[in-house]
Amino acid sequence: MSPLKIKKGANSHSAYNLRPNFSDVQETHTLAVIVDNEAGVLARVIGLFAGRGYNIESLTVAEIDHSGKLSRITVVTTGTPQAIEQIKAQLGRIVPVHRVNDLTVDGPSVERELALFKVEGTGEKRVEALRLADIFRANVVDSTLESFVFELTGPTDKIDAFADLMRPLGLAELARTGVAALSRGA
């Protein structure tokens, strides 16, 4: 394997074989980008996505090492396999980027998102919301007689599912952090 993790040799002896290699299949990948925490670094990363027409589905960023001044940007993106490879290579050449990990291909990983749901309602709907929150193990972090704020942590699809359930029960506002992710194991 080359440093690019491109399969070598294989079957692409001709440009006519490009189709299978450059497939139109859209994949979703979670990338962890470790960067110097300096002014404008986030602008460089999202400017790259905007400038080259790549998708951003979710983006989280925070400092992870204060003394080393490093931040971790977790970005969930979709594209063809070729586009994903380009995104990683393009991210890798931004000067303050230390490394780019593709958590989707590098092995198993855990992904979590935190979300806050404001659900407004009274009577049976209010009871039902609380019951579902219990099933999903969401915490109540604020409560009035007409509303709850639930806090829920989990993978994106769990948050989506809970949001779908809350919608008919009076979901008034929703705030999500976007995905944070780490590879499993040592």
């Binding site: 690019l4 491109i6 070598k8 040799g9 692409s12 002896h13 440009a15 490009l18 380009q86 290579a89």
Partner: peptide, 23 residues
């Protein structure tokens, strides 16, 4: 009908438009 090798110092240049066999 050609096998392609590509020598480049910039990883993002490789497989950007043409898939190569020997990056």
């Amino acid at each position: 009908g050609s096998r392609k090798a590509h020598i480049d110092i910039d990883p993002s240049s490789i497989n950007k438009v043409i898939r190569v066999d020997m990056p």
